[in-house]
């Protein structure tokens, strides 16, 4: 699900950026740092829409770096249990298939695939109904329901540290949501077959 929320972050800026373009520098650095990151609490930061307020900078002893508290609005994407998503299949194997919805990886195990679909191995592994009318293979688009989510432990750490002022730049670990989904329900399954286009 997408949300438009206000987040806050302390930006450290090198003294060489001080000058007329200070604000632009802060904003561009913010975008570079934040967009595409993920936290367990808010999910993926898709895009920064506006900067609400840049607070007073604080010069850090010893380094000369200045820390600015920045409030910004952004669009975040967070998967929830029970949510219906549309995703692109990225890999098919006998255990099930993996799909991606933007930054989110989803695994659909074979027991959550309708019983009438069978795994066909080969050059292009796929799940096919007995009459061959529906086929799930790489690059198929499927609609699925999320039945479980997981965030990496490093993400939770980062999450905690984000709640209090943090004086170092964005965490170096790119965080990931991982979900498991099902297509064994009404109105779920393939919505667009790449071969028929």
């Amino acid at each position: 699900m997408f949300f438009h929320i206000v987040l806050e972050r302390n930006m450290q800026l090198h003294p060489r950026h001080f000058g007329r373009n200070l604000r632009e520098h802060i904003i561009s650095k913010l975008m570079k740092d934040v967009e595409g990151t993920c936290s367990g609490r808010h999910g993926f930061v898709v895009a920064i829409t506006s900067v609400e307020n840049i607070g007073k900078g604080l010069i850090r002893d010893g380094t000369g770096f200045v820390t600015f508290p920045v409030k910004y609005q952004c669009v975040v994407f967070r998967p929830f249990k029970g949510e219906i998503l549309e995703a692109v299949v990225s890999m098919v194997n006998k255990m099930g298939f993996f799909a991606e919805a933007g930054p989110v990886q989803i695994f659909v195990s074979n027991h959550l695939i309708p019983d009438d679909m069978e795994f066909q191995s080969g050059d292009m592994p796929n799940y096919t109904t007995s009459d061959g009318s529906v086929k799930i293979q790489k690059d198929s688009e499927v609609r699925l329901k999320i039945i479980g989510t997981r965030v990496d432990a490093t993400e939770i750490d980062k999450n905690i540290s984000q709640s209090r002022p943090k004086w170092d730049p964005a965490g170096s670990h790119p965080s990931r949501f991982f979900c498991i989904g099902t297509i064994k329900d009404d109105f779920l399954g393939v919505i667009n077959d790449p071969t028929t286009i």
Partner: peptide, 13 residues
């Protein structure tokens, strides 16, 4: 199944 991403191997499926 939540561990699935770590468990896939490259050589077979």
């Amino acid at each position: 199944a939540l561990d699935a991403l770590r468990l896939v191997s490259l050589e077979d499926d």
